[in-house]
Design a protein around this nucleic acid. Structure first.
Lengths: 218, 218
DNA sequence: ACCTGAACACCGTTCAAGT
DNA sequence: ACCTGAACACCGTTCAAGT
């Protein structure tokens, strides 16, 4: 009741939530999200660690805020009219957004955390599937299959990249494939040398199209 | 040279690596893998925290050991002869093995960590794809698409389950879908009420079949 | 209202010392 | 050879006290 519109009481703020968020983004880009600690973040923001708790509830809320923020920035693309192509395009927007900041997937993998701001992509996919002739349930299931595939791709690629960056150990896969000349694994033995190169290829779009066409031509 | 076959020198071991691993398994089953700390593990094993480092190099090696161990226990199933069905069956074995201990995915998501013991499943899929007529590269790409889809499904389901278990917050998704009556999201608004139920359905096999058939009928 | 230092209850890991 | 306590360099978070 007595709270004045403009004149607040007490000390004026020196730190804003926005400052904290952008410091957090810097820190994550520099060191990765697992290495974001409240204490390091405070240091970068130039405040005491305890000050952070005036602006965010806890570490988890901070990460969720970063995620929402990022989702808001995803530009809304014009999507093709043809349903199948529309699904592929919307899924690709999701995929590319995640690929740009793969740690998000690790924070968010719950089916849902696709906050508000990202729902238009879900809508696009469900709508296109229904326009193509799917009943509602199937459209949702299609969306979920696409989501599984997309999350998996991002995650596998992200952790492969991370492993590659930590050059200390020579990539477990390589040691596995080196000893790989077993009669019970003829196909893998034959292809062992080319395996790393084949895995490095970007086949997201390829698999996505197959998945969607497979789902729609049942 | 002088090392005797049987008579070792020094104090006899009181702790074995196997004991540590099984204590770790208990701890993970009780509290989840993120909560497995070296100190808690030591307490459960009845030794000093520092003792663990005599038996495993560090926490990461411990987790890798658990993973290898688990992979060794996956029973080798007889797979169908028909290629498409063989792919589906092998993928399902992978899927079910991971579903039984979903934290593994989070440890392992690198494309590779499918240690030695699990390679037969990869072999089965690549082999079936080639028998069906795929060239080697395509067979590998098919395997990877299946792997993405599988990893994604496990991960999304596991973290949804975890969220549900932490009942303190009322599932972000539900709050999102409650306010969901926006004209720009007509499909989602119409289906909002049924969304949770639809997401709870197990559609792994459904999407897997579509993906594989989509990939093979290009 | 906003910020802080001190403190609590933790971590993983190393290393010199004990048996 | 095996095990340990003490110690190091960290965590996230709370809370009473300062301005």
């Amino acid at each position: 009741m007595a709270a004045p519109e403009r004149g607040r009481t007490g000390r004026p703020p020196r730190t804003s939530r926005a400052q904290i968020l952008s410091a957090a983004r810097e820190l994550i880009d520099d060191e990765g999200w697992e290495r974001l600690t409240m204490r390091k973040l405070a240091a970068r923001a130039g405040v005491a660690p305890t000050t952070l708790y005036h602006h965010v509830r806890d570490r988890e809320e901070l990460l969720a805020a970063l995620l929402d923020d990022y989702a808001d920035r995803i530009p809304r693309r014009e999507l093709p009219r043809e349903p199948v192509e529309r699904i592929l395009a919307a899924a690709t927007v999701m995929h590319d957004a995640l690929a740009g900041w793969p740690w998000l997937v690790e924070v968010l993998t719950a089916d849902d955390l696709i906050g508000d701001a990202a729902l238009w992509m879900v809508e696009a996919i469900v709508d296109a599937a229904m326009e193509h002739g799917c009943p509602a349930d199937e459209a949702v299931h299609l969306y979920r299959s696409v989501w599984y595939y997309t999350v998996g791709e991002i995650l596998v690629r992200a952790s492969a990249d991370r492993k590659r960056a930590e050059l200390d150990r020579p990539a477990y896969r390589d040691t596995v494939f080196r000893r790989l000349d077993k009669p019970e694994l003829p196909r893998l033995s034959a292809i062992a040398g080319r395996w790393p190169a084949l895995c490095a290829e970007d086949t997201y779009a390829y698999g996505l199209r197959a998945l969607v066409e497979g789902l729609l031509t049942k």
